[in-house]
Nucleic acid binder design. Structure first.
Lengths: 165, 165
DNA sequence: AAAGTAGAGGACCAAAATGGTCCGATTTTG
DNA sequence: CAAAATCGGACCATTTTGGTCCTCTACTTT
């Protein structure tokens, strides 16, 4: 029910890896594939998608490659994932051009739309810099600065334990 | 990325419909299928799953059928959906017995686990009675009683507009 | 007790989605 | 001009999904 596509996983991995290289440098697909163990062909497609979404910039030709188009703190989680998810909807009656034939008895659409919008809104403020502090996650109750304009989700994430079931 | 399986949709529809019949009555699969326009065979499977989950009770024999095992306010959204979703995880490295071969470079697992847990926690308090007040959804800022032990998600849902994008 | 009703559940199939590969075209550096 | 890189379409294999069919078992009614 929450599973993202494999391409989305690769996209997250790619952004995470690109964030580790120098901001003005670019990395070729071949190198990135070797670093991340993601098949080169697939990775290429993913990076093309990320480029279309404006998340990464591409430099063609020899010595070219990919780099982040802005800082991780300015790249939202949804920016990375959305290009590879056909629609961020929970039920089929929210899909584009899908007329629900059960409108008389089933009134799932409106509550589900509200639920959907709520969850989406939660993700709005989640940025990719949160994925770059690997060892902070298991520490419960991490106090400290915190970014100024982050949502409760990001705040909660910083303070939550990763292994809670 | 958020899409639930078709069976989950049917499960939600079934529970919603069963909630409309008298609490001590049971409805046969054939009747329920006719009411909801869900194929009888599929609906039967879904109801069996719901029964195993303890959401509905079944009465065998002539005049038998299905009914809710408790009031909609005591049935959680996840109770209805979970039996039909193989795992409520966002990335593959959280799936059971899946060893991630990228542990050295990719540190997606911990943040994603935290993210996952957070979202799950949001859904924890969402109960099925929220799906039974169909025309309240488009009204913004509905004040009033509110149930005593509901989470912020349910509260926000009641007050949010359904059509927000 | 008999008969019919209704749930339980396995086997199977078709269609769609998914993940991945291959190949050619284009652009830029050297 | 040649090498290195992005771009992007076409294609294929596998898995997942949604759905149907058929049989068995248990219960209720007559």
């Amino acid at each position: 029910m929450f599973k993202v596509s494999r391409k989305s996983e690769y996209a997250l991995i790619a952004v995470q890896q690109l964030a580790r290289s120098l901001p003005d440098r670019v990395v070729s697909v071949a190198d990135l594939s070797q670093q991340t163990q993601v098949p080169a062909d697939v990775l290429a497609k993913v990076l093309q998608g990320l480029k279309r979404a404006g998340v990464v910039r591409a430099v063609k030709g020899a010595g070219g490659g990919y780099g982040l188009s802005r800082s991780p703190a300015e790249i939202r989680f949804l920016d990375v994932v959305q290009p590879f998810e056909d629609k961020l909807a929970m039920v089929s009656c929210q899909m584009p051009s899908h007329e629900c034939e059960r409108l008389d008895t089933c009134s799932l659409r409106d509550p589900m739309a509200a639920l959907n919008a709520f969850v989406l809104r939660q993700f709005e403020g989640l940025t990719m810099d949160v994925f770059l502090v690997p060892h902070q996650w298991i520490a419960v109750g991490t106090r400290g600065a915190g970014h100024p304009h982050e949502t409760s989700l990001a705040r909660r994430l910083r303070a939550s334990d990763a292994a809670s079931g």
